[in-house]
Write a protein that binds this DNA or RNA. Structure first.
Lengths: 154, 154
DNA sequence: GTCTTTGCAAAGCTTTTGCATTCTG
DNA sequence: CAGAATGCAAAAGCTTTGCAAAGAC
């Protein structure tokens, strides 16, 4: 993932981040605001360590602070956490339409998917199981374009 | 999960288990065969520790043996492993139509779902992302009938 | 000034691994 | 008998936690 320093800067989305945090009764600290910008501008969901490594380039921050921020933001529904089939926990901003994920089983690259077939079956699943459905996790697994190319070269 | 001792017994599905293991070039050990029966008769997918606790009632077995057996059987596509949103790794027998899972976000009960909407969108996802799709993981999250009842009582 | 957040180090939990022993075919 | 599987104990990897210091409002 390539991310420009300026993308994460405190001043980006400053008011918006401030409001989001305040409405969740969370202090609008510099570190949380920069963390939000980091996820805002990422083209894939990130895990705690990736976020830590990106933020470290700009500010002093501790890995456990990242973990604590991520879990506070997730509890407040500001972020969505997803655990992937390889055990990797990744986070994305919870805008109306957070997206599903596809992972490459060769290089582990993660990309977003813009399709969600779930809404169509919520009612049937509810009837089938008796559960009230409140959410879902969907991960596709496959081979990314790069890896397909490499395979075809051989 | 309630499971009768006799369900897991070595003699159940003996020939079948033996063949399955042999075709995967795995030794047909007593412990693996009983482990398979344990999953065969479970009405929900189980994690390593649950399997360990069930098997321990009948035989001497070590938790790391359970882990090693599960990963050998998963590599051989005899089992399917799924990691749930709470980080719990569960396993089920990989019969033609292994099933998706729904977890109760209150009591963490896991049940099977008999519906899969994924096949219909594989092509679109592939076009959208450029990936070749080889699999998927789907977990529904909700509130189970028991917990709904408890909520309504209050 | 009070309550929340953060840093640091230590602990926790699940899963994996090394090595000697036992078992399968 | 040769190679695979197992038990045991230790290590690994990721995440959480306790406590004192720093920061937000």
């Amino acid at each position: 993932m390539t991310l420009n320093k300026c993308d994460c800067s405190l001043d980006n989305h400053r008011k918006e981040n401030n409001n989001i945090l305040k409405s969740a009764n969370l202090k609008a600290t510099k570190k949380r605001m920069i963390l939000l910008n980091c996820l805002r501008h990422s083209d894939a969901p990130l895990n705690a360590e990736e976020i830590y490594n990106i933020l470290k380039q700009d500010i002093n921050i501790n890995l456990s602070t990242v973990y604590r921020a991520l879990s506070a933001l997730t509890d407040a529904d500001i972020l969505v956490k997803q655990i992937l089939s390889d055990g990797n926990n990744v986070y994305q901003i919870n805008n109306k339409n957070h997206r599903h994920i596809i992972t490459c089983k060769i290089c582990n690259k993660i990309s977003y998917v813009n399709i969600c077939p779930i809404n169509d079956v919520i009612d049937s699943v509810s009837k089938d199981t008796g559960y009230e459905i409140t959410g879902h996790n969907l991960e596709f697994i496959g081979i990314c374009p790069n890896c397909i190319e490499k395979i075809e070269e051989n």
